[in-house]
Design a binder for these strands. Structure first.
Length: 672
DNA sequence: CAGCCGGTAAACAATT
DNA sequence: AAATTGTTTACCGGCT
């Protein structure tokens, strides 16, 4: 225990550790790029706008339908009234309206990307809130629709209805159902194509959309047309040749800025259960009725119904057009459904991002308030590392207890590293290396927090044995420990290591012997192990060099921005929201953060060369900005450790510098 | 695909 | 003699 708070710890100063290789970043970037490539091509319209427009459209359409249905129910006649039946409801409700639950993979992603600046969070938050609103409206509409349908159905059944109607209806329904199925299939195809393109990543275990096996060839021309129209709305992702105007929605409506939804990927699993707790709000929310002229389907004198673009002189004429051309018929309904699906996708994305945001918020803010009740589940991280597929169970025989199921997700913290030497946490320092891949650097605060977390949660720490061993040794007052003491440290600091002793102890011994950085020193009482920082540092470069992927993301001078960008990009990539992609660089807020980070980076680098001024300077800026601990980019873990090495070895070895330089070079190369 | 890394398992020797 | 400590080799999976 004393070790924990031990003063000695100063050793590790600021280590900004980077992890070795970060595959995750790479992936993220890659996907992002792909998304951009596929999506940006055609669009000049901001994706956000698109998304917004589409949502609006969907809502509008839905409202329209709802209104019509209501009228019908209330006795007002309308052309085709019963085109719906229970059978139809199913697909819609099940497949379309259910939001999705976050999958483990998503969680992982979330975990990996937790590095957002407050500004980013804000932006995200705002966006999500906006989307949420729309989503709620949509859901509300949907529920109503369902109710209406049921009502209708009941009426029909009880009334015994006129044969005519039924006759009319039957065929229509059949046709409609068929269309729906086809639509779904199309979407499925779309999904598949997206997957192929790498835009979509489906969780392994998740089945794709629950589609019915329809022959693909059956797609009626009309449906195809429909599909095109609908899809054209989101050109971003669907680069498919069919693209057609793409303009419609976008131009007109809305918001000038933003991102797109490109994402769309219809997430298969979406259909499963998830649910956004959206409570149906009140229908009053429907604004359009009150502001007729602001009809989402009407803008710039043009009907914005997907694929329509009919010119309407004025609003009244537009209304006429709307009622005549886009009445409640099969086509409109199908279009509506498609739109709904589009919206749903957006919702899914929204849900994901919300979750992510939640995690980030929790991580960043709650932290202080909430006693890390459920600290983070790095385990996710670790498990990820171990295996991507297995959702929760850690593949390895590790005893992973699902400890905190509630798991907050703040995981990202995994990484590790910034150590504050002096201060920051009494806890010891750093655990620097996270598991190979996810090397997201962590702030001291994270570490401290994590420490608590690991002490109680049987979660495998995302650090290598070597890192842990080193940590243990460095934390000791004399910087040396016997094997048994190391064991004790492990068990004391990590609940995870209270199990499977044979396994990890063997690993510890193995590591001690294997790595040159661990030096065995004969002692009076036997032998103790010490750390040769120089050696330890030496090993790093290799990894780092292998990190290019990670580095690529960053911009040379903005090394520290990397995490940020990475997170953003990942987020965007996932959501296919270009907005951020481009914006991130230009965004002033981000820029500020970036510069702050850069400073930190520079500081880190400098002190790395110099001596132990370490981390304190570098990190302060960031912290000052916000409690956010941005995980500093790992440029090199070494850096973080640099100071430490000094401490231990006391001298500045050329090798050290070389390593550093080497790394820097590598970084630059990659970046450029 | 090769190479590197880290984790795990295990055999074996030396020491306590 | 048993347990602990160290060393070494092999294999596997992930990543670059």
């Amino acid at each position: 225990m004393m070790q924990e708070s031990g003063p000695e710890t100063k050793s590790n100063g600021s280590a900004v550790q980077n992890g070795s290789s970060s595959g995750s970043h790479l992936l993220e970037c890659g996907s992002l790029r792909e998304a951009r490539a596929n999506g940006e091509a055609a669009v000049d319209v901001a994706p956000a706008d698109l998304a917004h427009a589409q949502q609006q459209q969907a809502l509008q359409v839905a409202r329209q339908l709802l209104l019509q249905q209501q009228q019908q129910v209330s006795g007002i006649k309308s052309p085709k009234r019963n085109d719906k039946q229970p059978a139809l409801q199913v697909p819609v409700s099940v497949a379309m309206m259910t939001p999705q639950v976050i999958t483990p993979q998503q969680m992982q992603q979330i975990l990996q990307q937790q590095v957002l600046s407050p500004q980013q969070l804000q932006v995200l938050l705002q966006q999500q809130q906006a989307l949420m609103l729309q989503q709620q409206q949509l859901q509300e509409f949907y529920k109503k629709q369902q109710e209406q349908l049921q009502l209708q159905l009941l009426q029909q059944q009880h009334a015994g209805k006129q044969p005519k109607e039924q006759q009319q209806v039957a065929p229509q329904q059949l046709a409609f159902q068929q269309q729906l199925l086809q639509m779904q299939q199309l979407q499925q195809q779309h999904l598949l194509s997206l997957q192929r393109q790498g835009l979509l990543s489906l969780p392994p275990g998740q089945p794709a959309l629950p589609l019915q096996p329809l022959s693909q060839g059956m797609i009626p021309a009309e449906l195809q047309q429909l599909w095109k129209e609908v899809t054209s709305a989101h050109p971003a992702e669907e680069t498919t040749g069919s693209s057609h105007g793409s303009v419609d929605l976008t131009t007109a409506t809305c918001v000038p800025s933003a991102p797109a939804k490109t994402s769309l990927l219809m997430n298969p699993h979406a259909s499963t259960n998830g649910q956004l707790s959206v409570h149906t709000p009140k229908r009053e929310s429907v604004p359009h009725e009150e502001h007729p002229h602001s009809h989402p389907l009407y803008g710039h004198g043009v009907c914005k119904w997907p694929g329509c673009e009919a010119v309407c002189e004025d609003f009244p004429s537009f209304l006429k057009h709307l009622n005549s051309e886009h009445a409640l018929d099969d086509r409109s309904t199908a279009q509506c459904r498609v739109q709904m699906q589009v919206v749903q996708q957006l919702e899914l994305q929204l849900a994901k991002d919300k979750e992510r945001l939640q995690a980030m918020m929790t991580h960043l803010h709650v932290k202080s308030t909430e006693p890390k009740a459920a600290p983070q589940p790095l385990n996710l991280v670790s498990s990820v590392t171990l295996s991507k597929s297995a959702p929760e169970a850690s593949p390895q025989s590790l005893p992973h207890t699902p400890t905190t199921p509630t798991a907050p997700l703040t995981p990202a913290t995994q990484g590790a590293s910034v150590i504050t030497t002096t201060s920051m946490h009494t806890v010891g320092p750093i655990r620097r290396r996270y598991s190979d891949k996810y090397n997201v650097p962590i702030s001291s605060a994270d570490i401290a927090q994590n420490q608590e977390f690991y002490k109680n949660a049987e979660v495998r720490p995302p650090f290598t044995y070597a890192s842990l061993i080193r940590q243990a040794i460095l934390e000791s007052p004399e910087k040396q420990l016997t094997l048994n003491e190391i064991y004790n440290w492990f068990t004391r600091m990590f609940a995870y290591f209270r199990r499977n002793a044979a396994t990890w102890k063997n690993a510890v011994r193995h590591n001690l012997s294997l790595h040159k950085c661990f030096v065995r020193v004969e002692n009076v009482k036997g032998a103790v192990w010490t750390v040769d920082e120089v050696e330890f540092q030496k090993r790093r470069p290799q990894k780092i060099s292998g990190n290019p992927s990670l580095i690529k993301n960053m911009q040379s001078s903005h090394a520290y921005c990397t995490p940020l960008n990475a997170a953003l990009q990942a987020s965007m990539a996932e959501n296919s929201i270009p907005l951020y992609t481009t914006a991130s660089l230009g965004n002033p807020a981000l820029g500020g953060l970036a510069s702050a980070m850069r400073e930190e980076l520079n500081g880190a680098v400098e002190h790395a060369n110099s001596t132990e001024s370490d981390s304190s300077p570098g990190r302060s800026p960031v912290q000052a900005v916000h409690p956010v601990h941005v995980k500093e980019e790992p440029l090199d873990p070494e850096e973080a450790e640099g100071p430490l090495s000094l401490v231990t070895t006391a001298n500045h070895s050329p090798e050290f510098d070389q390593d550093r330089d080497y790394e820097d070079e590598a970084v630059n190369e990659d970046m450029e």
